[in-house]
Design a protein around this nucleic acid. Structure first.
Lengths: 206, 206
DNA sequence: ACACAAAAGTGCGTGCACGCAAAAATGCGC
DNA sequence: GCGCATTTTTGCGTGCACGCACTTTTGTGT
């Protein structure tokens, strides 16, 4: 009566299809370029109907980015849980988010360059950062014991800061010169951006 | 050589079509319900071709919400500039954003209920809050004199907090009970949410 | 083993977003 | 007024997202 738990065979198959789709999407995008990949191609490569593809992803870009996105979402949660419980909230959060920047650069470098070099994919990838809000909020709630708006707001603020850092990294100056040249590593940018919201985290860390 | 300034006749006509489109979109949505309004209808009501409509808006929802959104974007900037220069940054920002909640409730009540009662429109409306980041960032930069990431990050954090408040207002509990019942006014929610990011603003207010 | 309920997959039809290139409108210098 | 460069509008074609109803698969209870 409950094949909805991770143990269920149904769930596993569903996850398998999802991964097959995103893997196929990423592979095809790498092979033929993002613009030359049609939804039908992805569906066929994954062995499902085009319509089924749309049951899993609501945009081509989302499918291509999904693989990296999912890994990142899991990593944040794990990283935050791995921090010592007595560490200040701000430090723990910063460390957890930074872990995303340092580790993710390696696994599939060509995938990252593909994504960052395509506007539509960049947008989808940045959008991905929104998905870390939920795990972040949960972790913050667990740490502080606070309930209500606070954890959600703080998680959203952190996510927003990370988004700004990421945007400034991929496209240094969309119109304005931007005094601080972001040629530095993403980690540096991220650290600075998070630093600006850290006071809010400190205030909530009773 | 510069009909791009507000004085140019070309610019005025462009703005006029835009307003005609969004006005038509909102009116038709109010009359027949959001789902029963096709893009062609909006275009015809505004006296332009369907293709032209897409040169102005990239989604039906965006067109419907645009009228309210534009007014709000202007209002934030004005509200922030209207605050005394020696007021603490956090207070000024909170006041400016709150102004959005208190004033906007009145102009077109039925439009608001229409928007809040439709998921797709809600999404578009919430998305609108992103547009206040730019004016906010500019205003913060002007106040603090700080340049670089700080103003952008802070504006993003404020916008994110406002977004959370708005989301919790329109749909109190999407899954979880949420201890603090958000039946209170939007202004109250907003005030609390912004309060959680206020420390970050204080820290930047030299 | 069998039947049955739930859930995932599928086909179809509709409306939409958007690139591209041609056509109309606009503003400027003469 | 006149023609020219620029901008805006438009028509067309393509690919896509998604609701709906239907089929197939899967897990469970008997």
């Amino acid at each position: 009566m409950s094949p909805n738990e991770p143990g269920g065979l149904r769930e596993r198959k569903k996850l398998a299809t999802r991964e097959a789709l995103s893997a196929a999407a990423l592979r095809l995008a790498l092979e033929h370029g993002p613009e030359n990949v049609r939804v039908d191609d992805i569906a066929e490569a994954a062995g499902v109907s085009p319509r089924t593809y749309n049951n899993y992803f609501s945009s081509r870009e989302q499918a291509i980015v999904a693989a990296l996105a999912a890994e990142r979402a899991l990593r944040v949660g794990a990283a935050l849980r791995a921090r010592p419980a007595d560490e200040p909230l701000a430090d723990a959060v910063v460390a957890a988010v930074l872990d995303l920047c340092t580790s993710t650069d390696e696994p599939s470098g060509d995938a990252l360059t593909l994504i960052t070099s395509n506007p539509a994919l960049r947008k989808a990838f940045v959008q991905t950062l929104t998905e870390i809000e939920q795990p972040l909020a949960a972790a913050i709630e667990a740490r502080t014991g606070t309930r209500g708006l606070a954890p959600t707001v703080l998680a959203a603020a952190v996510s927003a800061a990370a988004r700004v850092a990421l945007e400034n990294w991929v496209s240094p100056a969309p119109g304005n010169p931007l005094l601080v040249v972001p040629q530095g590593s993403l980690a540096e940018l991220m650290r600075e951006a998070l630093g600006h919201v850290a006071p809010a985290l400190d205030a909530a860390d009773h």
